[in-house]
Design a protein around this nucleic acid. Structure first.
Length: 356
DNA sequence: AATGCCGCCAACCGCGAAGCT
DNA sequence: GAGCTTCGCGGTTGGCGGCAT
């Protein structure tokens, strides 16, 4: 425990006597040179150890005890902007030291954010999926010819519908992660006249995690039946109470309505595929598929793939969302019976998203 | 009661920046 | 400008206490 280093300087925990010596000396003389201080104060410690003891523990203006909820919010929000700049964060919290904040972050806040589904490093919703980068595989999945399924041809068209739903599922994930607070967004708020308070920003972070949780918490990240899909959407709708940061939530509502309508009108398809021996793999582990589809299905899929490749829409950059929807809209236009699909894509792409 | 595990947090360590000669 | 010293920061360590077995 207690240790003496090679220069006979004491290390380890400070005794009350040592604390008192340090306090007395600094109150009388100020700390001056930390290197010279221990000798002058009669302490058998190195200057660095004295400085740390003073700045992290003995300073009279130190606030001890539990962090308040407001302090928590401030730390989280500042961390989103500043990263691990503990001293910079501490400067916004009178009475708190960088060491204390760092410890609090590592032992409490980090876990809390993870539990909320927020990546404590990026402050964006955690996602194990590579979102739109799965799109080509996903769409290829519509071109099904699963050797384990007897009624391959019927399932092929069903799977096409299902793939679309999963595309929408991914779109929601992209949208829900798009407005995650980042440097730019927070700076925007700072300079704007609609500066939100810390609580609003915090609620906003929580909202992101709710969205993500609803979408990815399922065992395979996708509702397996029509009923589950509808139930998920209802939950999503019920939870969709974004803080009023910068306007309406119409895009999100459109998406929810769109998915509800779409899954309603295709409930047979969703249930059939889900209940068949064809199982929907996790969206990030799509199977290798053999092309053997009816003309219509095959043609749609290849068009989608071509469009995706030619428009280079695979991106994790949230700012690319609006352009992402444009080629999809064009593609869907070719399927006359799915005019709603196109409307939905257009609606989603034409509306701006809060904070984006 | 003894033991092991785990979370918390004070303290240490290493490194880079700033200041001084 | 180079070399040395001092300071401050962020990452890591290790002791302590609480809890489970």
């Amino acid at each position: 425990m207690m240790e003496i280093d090679e220069n006979d300087l004491k290390k380890g925990p400070w005794t009350p006597e040592e604390d008192q010596k340090l306090i007395d000396y600094i109150q009388k003389h100020g700390h001056g040179s930390w290197r010279a201080l221990p000798k002058l104060a009669g302490l058998n410690r190195c200057g660095k150890s004295c400085r740390l003891r003073w700045t992290n523990y003995l300073r009279p203006d130190i606030k001890r005890g539990k962090f308040s909820e407001e302090e928590e919010h401030i730390i989280i929000n500042l961390h989103a902007v500043l990263g691990n700049k503990w001293s910079a964060i501490a400067s916004h919290l009178p009475g708190r030291t960088d060491n204390e904040i760092k410890n609090f972050w590592n032992t409490h806040l980090k876990k809390k954010l993870l539990q909320m589904g927020i990546d404590p490093v990026t402050h964006r919703p955690r996602t194990d999926l590579d979102l739109l980068s799965n799109l080509p595989q996903l769409l290829a999945a519509a071109n099904l010819a699963n050797p384990w399924v007897d009624n391959v041809l019927r399932l092929q068209s069903d799977a096409t519908q299902l793939a679309k739903i999963q595309v929408l599922n991914n779109i929601i994930q992209v949208l829900s992660s798009a407005p995650a607070p980042n440097m730019e967004a927070i700076n925007h708020f700072r300079s704007s006249s609609i500066l939100p308070d810390q609580h609003q920003l915090y609620e906003y972070l929580q909202m992101n995690s709710k969205l993500e949780g609803l979408l990815v918490n399922g065992s395979i990240g996708f509702p397996s039946t029509h009923d589950q899909m509808q139930s998920k959407l209802s939950n999503y709708e019920a939870n969709f109470q974004l803080p009023q940061l910068s306007g309406d939530h119409q895009p999100a509502q459109n998406i929810i309505n769109g998915l509800k309508n779409y899954t309603s009108s295709n409930s047979d398809c969703v249930d059939q595929v889900a209940n068949s021996s064809y199982s929907i793999p996790p969206s990030n582990v799509l199977p290798n598929l053999v092309s053997a589809s009816p003309d219509q299905c095959s043609s749609i899929v290849s068009q989608i793939e071509n469009q995706i490749n030619s428009n280079d829409i695979i991106s994790n950059d949230p700012s690319s969302i609006s352009t992402t929807f444009e080629p999809l809209g064009d593609i869907m236009e070719n399927e006359a019976s799915d005019s709603y699909w196109k409307d939905f894509i257009e609606q989603a792409s034409s509306q701006s998203w809060p904070m984006s």
